[in-house]
Design a protein around this nucleic acid. Structure first.
Lengths: 339, 339
DNA sequence: AATATTACCGAAAACGTTTTAGTAGCCTTC
DNA sequence: GAAGGCTACTAAAACGTTTTCGGTAATATT
C-alpha cells in the first residue's frame, strides 16, 4: 500500500526545508532553478498531491458547498442539483448533499453538522416540515455566522438571503389563460395545502387568471391534498362530483393519476378535458397523451443558485445586499391540451 | 456577525489552558468538577461546536464518503443514492456526490479531487466512458492508497474491491421464462451495446431462458442501441420488420417508447404483445398499461454499499478480503403482461 | 517529618499546509 | 573594506483540534 506522501517527506528526502518544498512546487521566484527542478521531479515521481483538509484548515475555505433538499428521488430536485453540481464543479467546488426527507428535525441536524466548518455555503429548498412549522432559526443562525445561503424554489420571506425561484404565479396564470383561450369554462385545480410557498403562488395565479377573464372563482373546483401522497378514492369522487373541462395540477403525479382516471371513465383528452401539470418531468413526457407542462427549468435554477452562492463565498466584503432571481416558466405543449 | 468560537477563545476568556477546555468538554476525569461546569456552561452559552476540519486533520478521518455516479437525473441512481445517504447519515457520515456524466475523464478528475483527503472511501458506479475504454487505473490508484472502494451496479472484474450488484442475468431469465409460460413465442430484447456489464448479463439471461425452454435464439429479435438515446425510427422499423409477441427491455425508456409505438399501430397490450422492462421506476408505474418491471431494489443496494464501505473504513486492520453481494431481482407485475 | 499518592491542570507535539519574517552568503559599489 | 543589495534558502507561526507527558500543589501514608 502506497501511503500518501507529504511535504515533510519530500523535504526530508531531499534535505531541504518544508517551506522550500512548498514554494518550489508553487514555482516561487524565491527558489533556485535547480532546487525547484529537483523538488518538482521528486513530487511528480511520487505523485504528490496536497492534502485538501490541511489546506482547508489553513485558508478557512473548504471548496465544498452544502446542498440540503427535501428529497433526492424527485425529478425537479435532481434537475436543480445537476445544475448546481455542474456549475460548482466547473468552479472547483465539491457538493455535499443532505436529504431532509421533508422533516424539520433532519433539516436542522444536517445544517448544524455541515455548518461546523465542512462547507463554505449552503444551497437549499425548505422541507415541508419546516414550512409547516414556520421556524427558521436554524437558517438565521447560519447566516448570522456569516455563512452564505441561497434558497431555491421553496423559500421564505423570513430570512434575508439570496433566493432563486420561478414565477409560479405567472406559470399558473399562463396555464389557466391558455385553458380559457381554448374555450374551457370549468377549470379545476389540484393542489396541496397552502403551507407550501409554491402552492400558494400557483393558487394565486389561478385565481388571477380567472378573474382577469371574468370567470367566477369556484371553491368546489379546487381539490386539495394534505400531502404529496394521493388518495385514489378522493380523486375519483372529485371527478364524479364535479364536471370539469380542464385541470391544472401542481405536480405531475396528481395530473397523471387524474388523466388515467378520466380516461378510464371514457373521456377523451384533450377533446373532453385538457390537462396541464407543473414540473416538466419524465412522466409528462412519456404519458399518453403527453402532458402539457409548466417547465420550471430546474437545471438553470441550480446553476444560478450556485453562481450566486459562489459569488458571495468568494467576495471578501460582507455586503448585506441580497437579491431574489425570478425565473420565467414556460409552457411545454403536448397532447393533453389542444395546440 | 457572530464568528465561530474556538477552544482558544474559551480558554483565554476563562483563564485556563486549551487542553483543559478540550478535556472539560469531553467530561474528562482529569478536570475538576467546578472547572468542568464553568467551561461547559460557557461553551453552551456561546454555542461552541468543534471545527470539523480540524478534527479531520487530526484524526485523518473526514467522516465523508464520496459517491461518483454517471447521472443524477436518473431514477435508479437516485434511489441507490437515497439508500447510501440514509445509511451513511445514520452512521454520522456525510456524502459528497460527483457526477461523471458518463465520461471517463470526468470520473478520473472527480476521483482524484476527492482522493486527496476529502473522503474516507468511495462508492461508485462506472461511467459508460470508463466501461468503453476499459481503463481502471484511477480505481487501482485509489485502492492502492488504501482508500476503501465499493462498486455497485456497473462493476468490473478488473478491480479487487467490494461490490454489490443485482443478479441481472437471473432477472432477465425470470422475465423471459414468464413470457414463455404465458405462451409467448417470439420474444424480442431491446438493449444497448455490450460494454455495459449489465447489458451483457441481461442478454445472457435472455439466451439461457430461451435455450432452457427449447426456443432457438434468433439474432433478428435483438434490437441494440449504441447509447441511451433512442432513435424513434429504428424502433419503428424494428416492429414493422419483426413480428414479436413479447419484449424485454433493459430500461424503462426503451420499453415505454415501444409500447406507445405498438399501441399506435393498433396492437393491444398485453393481449397481442406483452412487455417487461428493467428498472422499476416512475415510468413503469404510471404508464398505461403499467409496465411489468424487474425491480432492482436500488435503495437496498445503496444501503448495502454504504454498510460495506463504512465497515471497511472503520476496521483498522487492512484485510485483503473483498466480497461481492448479489441481490435478487423481483418482478413487479403490472398491466403490460398477463398475470 | 519525609515520602507517596492523588487531583488537577498546562505545555507541547502532532495532523499538513501556507506565509511572514528572517538569515546566511555572496556580489557590488564607492 | 565597510555598507548595501541580492539570491536562495529556513524557522516558525498559524489554522483548531486531541492527546501524551509532565508538573505542582494538596492531601494521605509511614
Amino acid at each position: 500500500m502506497k501511503k500518501k506522501i507529504t511535504l515533510k517527506h519530500i523535504a526530508r528526502e531531499l534535505g531541504v526545508s518544508i517551506s522550500t518544498v512548498s514554494k518550489a512546487l508553487k514555482n516561487s521566484e524565491e527558489i533556485g532553478a535547480d532546487t525547484k527542478e529537483k523538488v518538482q521531479a521528486f513530487a511528480k515521481l511520487y505523485n504528490y498531491k496536497p492534502n485538501n483538509i490541511a489546506i482547508s484548515l489553513k485558508n478557512k475555505r473548504t471548496k465544498n458547498i452544502g446542498v440540503i433538499i427535501p428529497d433526492i428521488v424527485h425529478h425537479f430536485f435532481t434537475t436543480v442539483f445537476r445544475g448546481i453540481e455542474k456549475y460548482a464543479n466547473a468552479k472547483g467546488y465539491n457538493v455535499i448533499v443532505c436529504v431532509s426527507d421533508e422533516s424539520f428535525d433532519r433539516e436542522v441536524i444536517n445544517m448544524e453538522l455541515l455548518a461546523n466548518g465542512s462547507i463554505d455555503g449552503f444551497i437549499m429548498a425548505l422541507s415541508a416540515g419546516t414550512q409547516l412549522k414556520n421556524d427558521y432559526n436554524h437558517l438565521k443562525e447560519v447566516t448570522e455566522q456569516g455563512i452564505p445561503l441561497v434558497l431555491f424554489d421553496r423559500v421564505t420571506e423570513d430570512i434575508k438571503c439570496d433566493k432563486v425561484i420561478i414565477n409560479d404565479k405567472k406559470g399558473a396564470y399562463n396555464a389557466v389563460t391558455k385553458f380559457i383561450k381554448d374555450g374551457r369554462k370549468r377549470i379545476a385545480m389540484i393542489t396541496t395545502e397552502d403551507y407550501f410557498s409554491v402552492s400558494r403562488e400557483r393558487a394565486a395565479g389561478y385565481r388571477d387568471a380567472l378573474s382577469d377573464n371574468g370567470i367566477a372563482f369556484n371553491e368546489d373546483l379546487i381539490l386539495k391534498f394534505p400531502s404529496m401522497t394521493i388518495d385514489e378514492k378522493v380523486i375519483e369522487d372529485f371527478f364524479n362530483r364535479e364536471k370539469v373541462d380542464a385541470v391544472l395540477s401542481v405536480n405531475e403525479i396528481f395530473a397523471i393519476h387524474s388523466m388515467r382516471l378520466v380516461q378510464s371513465k371514457g373521456l377523451k383528452i384533450p377533446e373532453d378535458i385538457s390537462f396541464i401539470g407543473f414540473t416538466d418531468g419524465l412522466l409528462s413526457k412519456y404519458a399518453s397523451p403527453g402532458l402539457t407542462a409548466v417547465a420550471q427549468h430546474g437545471e438553470h435554477m441550480g446553476e444560478i443558485a450556485a453562481e450566486m452562492l459562489i459569488e458571495k463565498v468568494e467576495s471578501e466584503l460582507e455586503e448585506e445586499t441580497y437579491t431574489t432571481r425570478v425565473l420565467e416558466p414556460t409552457i411545454i405543449e403536448r397532447g393533453s391540451t389542444v395546440n
